[in-house]
Design a protein around this nucleic acid. Structure first.
Lengths: 286, 286
DNA sequence: CAAAACTGTTTATAAACTGGAAACAATCAG
DNA sequence: CTGATTGTTTCCAGTTTATAAACAGTTTTG
């Protein structure tokens, strides 16, 4: 198969008007130029240049081929620089996947500023709480609350959060505040479906981690619904700080069992691969 | 530099939807496919394909690049086949150089039939009697009466001819017919300028070649003018058979000294190079 | 007119690259 | 769990490549 290098050497010779000067211009030896052109002619099965020691002239075939060479080489150049630019500048379409609650609460608001800083970049934010296949569904990056052990995916830690047992001040007042996780069995524990499947609420006690089975009158797979229930004083729930944070600061919810909290958990950005991360992804994560 | 082969392998992978199937389709091993694509990605500095063991998907960069790849590869294909076709089919422009007399008398008449057999071919016939630089002036082929010793040019014998001493029947009648070249000094020898510069007329006697100095009242650098003079009975001239042939057959001129004629001389087609002769040239010469 | 300079080509040799087989790692099907 | 399949990596032999040097032919120059 013809190679682009051969074509560019040929174009160089035509441009320079000679093998020796072309060799100098291309920074290679003249024997290399000679052989490249000879090989190209062999592959095409046609003579491209009529050459004497002194003068050089294009064959009819050579003239035709040169014209096309120029165009092809510039097309390749274009393609290459398009890719490079896509790699260096944040643009194109960025497909982001994130959990529902976190996405609505933290990503969507941040997106406005991000997008105004990068007007060439389109963002496609897909929020859902199931674990998606990044590669199959073509995501550039996903935000994950739990770390996955998928070998081909690369994770980067974005932030930490805690899970806080909390309820409204009114609820605590009427039901009392537990001093130990075990006492939760006397409370109406509002449950996040996902946590339930893990067997209960996890704490970190003085003797290591412990899991407490809890039960209550309400369960949902949506963190915001849980929060609303808690705000209304229906019961106790375990909420991540990125959901309950504001309510805790504002005093609308109050925490309990803070001495038994698990160590910090992490929020991760996950990419399909590590090397050669497009700028759009890098910028977004930053 | 990116290579077309890499691009075609990448395009093959996209088309086949997998590395292994692409390898089978391209007839190479899958390790080669893997390495080619990896190298292409390195050179572009961007990931083109997101790959799991099971599934394959194009990156945004990959999708863009693939589109351009397809176009570039087909452009190259086009260029290549255009050259090949130019090489295989007689078409394009054929620049022919020939001596004046021979060109007018033999090439021009033959051209009509040749061109009607090859309507896609244009012919540019340049007639002159000076020796031109084929390469510098861009000729595809030249017809030469004398063999040149130009190293870079390749000659092919087209036909043979003889040089015949002849005059009109009337002239012979009134001046007598010479029996030996030496007797030419008693005749009015019409001279072709070019031959004069060689010192006289050359003959092949029983004792090997001989050159006879001749003189006469008329000399010209045009064979046809010489012929006309001879027809008019002005004197004796030495004409090539390709000029005097018809007149000799028709009896308008009669030969002499036929036993002393030189061995056959040749008419050559001369090309700038031997290998990869375009079809237009080959066809023309045939 | 010979020496010098310059052309493109060829040759010899060392370095780089290439492709395939096999081993490997990861995933999926049964 | 085992076997099949996917893409990657490693290793090695074979090829290709580039360069310098020698070469052949032509033009310029002193």
């Amino acid at each position: 198969m013809i190679s682009l290098y051969e074509m560019s050497v040929f174009a160089g010779v035509v441009e320079a008007g000679g093998f020796s000067s072309a060799a100098a211009a291309l920074g290679i030896s003249k024997s290399a130029v000679s052989k490249r052109v000879a090989r190209l002619e062999d592959r095409l099965g046609a003579r491209l240049l009529n050459r004497t020691t002194r003068r050089l002239s294009l064959t009819e075939a050579g003239a035709q081929f040169h014209e096309r060479c120029i165009r092809i080489l510039s097309d390749v150049e274009d393609a290459q620089s398009a890719i490079t630019s896509l790699q260096l500048n944040p643009r194109g379409t960025l497909r982001v996947n994130a959990p529902m609650s976190f996405g609505v609460r933290h990503i969507a608001p941040a997106l406005a500023g991000f997008m105004s800083r990068h007007p060439e970049l389109k963002v496609d934010l897909v929020l859902n709480d199931r674990v998606v296949d990044l590669i199959e569904e073509g995501f550039d990056v996903a935000v994950r609350i739990v770390r996955l052990s998928d070998s081909s995916l690369i994770a980067r830690r974005l932030a930490s959060y805690r899970r806080v047992v909390c309820a409204s001040p009114e609820y605590w007042e009427s039901h009392g505040r537990p001093a130990h996780p075990r006492q939760l069995k006397d409370h109406n524990c509002l449950n996040y479906t996902y946590l339930l499947t893990q067997g209960g609420w996890r704490f970190s006690g003085p003797n290591g981690p412990m899991t407490v089975a809890v039960s209550g009158s309400f369960q949902t797979n949506n963190g915001d619904a849980l929060r609303v229930a808690a705000l209304n004083g229906i019961g106790v729930c375990m909420l991540p700080t990125f959901i309950a944070g504001e309510d805790l600061s504002a005093g609308r919810l109050e925490a309990a069992l803070e001495d038994f909290e698990e160590e910090d958990l992490s929020i991760y950005a996950v990419f399909p691969h590590a090397r050669q991360l497009p700028a759009k992804v890098r910028t977004f994560v930053d």
